[in-house]
């Protein structure tokens, strides 16, 4: 009898557990850190969904995609959050993503009509420096100066890949010459954004590749107004971060609801001051005042998603040969 009770309780416990569906979201590490948007979003979404939202951190954007390819159709993930415009084409080639019908009235500098991915925030890449430095106005000036910079590896980080595309889009066939000019300015090439930015703050370089919105972090979180982004007259390359649903998800409806949630005001209003990017849709209360101090690029650069893989291959080869000298 005792065993029967035990068995029954176990059974009940399991089914009670099964009643709370679990939504698994693969994302990059900094999204789910204690200081990132993850904890706030998890709490807000769980209040509405009667579900258990589980974030799983997988390094940086490219690592996220690699992990997905490694797991293939058997992946536990329902949602992938944190791929960007440079990775969308590669992500689609896997055939793992489902189409979505989520739409919204986006405040993006470009028109958005992707059938699988929904944008949740965006930003411009820029070099960030201290106010005591006289910044260069473009890549040529930067290459001729002796300013030390830290960049990210385009093979393992989305800003690094963004810089590759930035120079390629702005200079086309002259890109190798630009890289050759930059080679002696580069202190080191880091694996991801976090390492690069950390080293910059430790004083290891004069400028670091980051976003135009990074100074807002220092103003709001640290009341430090000495960090600014340098406006480049070639224009600034854009990054749009997206969320997508996996075709093999066993929680398809819930996954759809989560994507809907990511473009709702509840999520959009926390992103600016946790992920330090522009929200995809302007929140009801607008942006914090510090964002007004961010530089507004003269020109927004973006290579169409489909063209990225071929260009990336070419630009990566140029980058490798310029920096191996």
């Amino acid at each position: 009898m005792k065993y029967l009770t035990l068995a029954a309780t176990t059974f009940l416990a399991t089914s009670a557990y099964a009643d709370t569906p679990e939504l698994v979201v693969y994302t990059y590490d900094s999204f789910i850190s204690d200081w990132g948007p993850g904890p706030v979003i998890e709490k807000a979404f769980e209040e509405t969904c009667a579900c258990d939202l589980k974030f799983v951190g997988m390094g940086d954007g490219p690592a996220l995609l690699a992990r997905l390819k490694l797991e293939g159709a058997r992946s536990d993930a329902d949602i992938v959050l944190g791929l960007d415009t440079s990775l969308i084409a590669a992500a689609k080639q896997t055939g793992l993503f489902a189409p979505t019908d989520v739409t919204a009235d986006y405040d993006l500098p470009i028109a958005w009509n992707d059938e699988s991915f929904v944008p949740y925030d965006w930003g411009y890449f820029a070099f960030v420096h201290s106010t005591d430095l006289t910044p260069p106005h473009n890549f040529r000036e930067l290459g001729e100066s002796d300013i030390k910079i830290i960049i990210q590896d385009p093979r393992s980080s989305t800003p690094g890949l963004g810089l590759l595309m930035w120079i390629k889009e702005a200079y086309g066939n002259e890109a190798p010459a630009i890289w050759a000019g930059l080679a002696d300015n580069i202190v080191t090439v880091t694996k991801g954004w976090s390492e690069a930015y950390g080293l910059f703050l430790e004083g290891e370089a004069d400028m670091v590749l980051s976003y135009t919105t990074s100074p807002a972090y220092h103003i709001i979180a640290e009341e430090d107004e000495t960090k600014v982004a340098a406006p480049f007259d070639e224009g600034h390359y854009m990054q749009v971060e997206v969320v997508g649903k996996l075709a093999n998800s066993d929680q398809s409806d819930l996954a759809g609801a989560f994507m809907e949630f990511m473009v709702s005001d509840a999520a959009q209003s926390v992103l600016p001051t946790t992920n330090w990017m522009y929200p995809a849709i302007m929140p009801k209360d607008g942006l914090p005042a510090a964002f007004d101090q961010s530089i507004e690029p003269e020109k927004a650069l973006l290579i169409p998603n489909e063209a990225v893989p071929a260009l990336r291959k070419e630009a990566l080869a140029e980058w490798l040969s310029a920096l191996s000298q």
Binding site: P62, A63, A66, R155, I186, T188, V189, L320, L323
Partner: peptide
């Protein structure tokens, strides 16, 4: 190499293996 090297000039084989797994898959 991951912390102090990196970049095309200072990549060890083990780091290249890591890059092959993590990014290009």
């Amino acid at each position: 190499a991951l912390t102090l090297g990196g970049g095309p000039r200072a990549t060890t084989i083990e780091l290249a293996i890591y890059q092959a797994f993590r990014f290009d898959f």
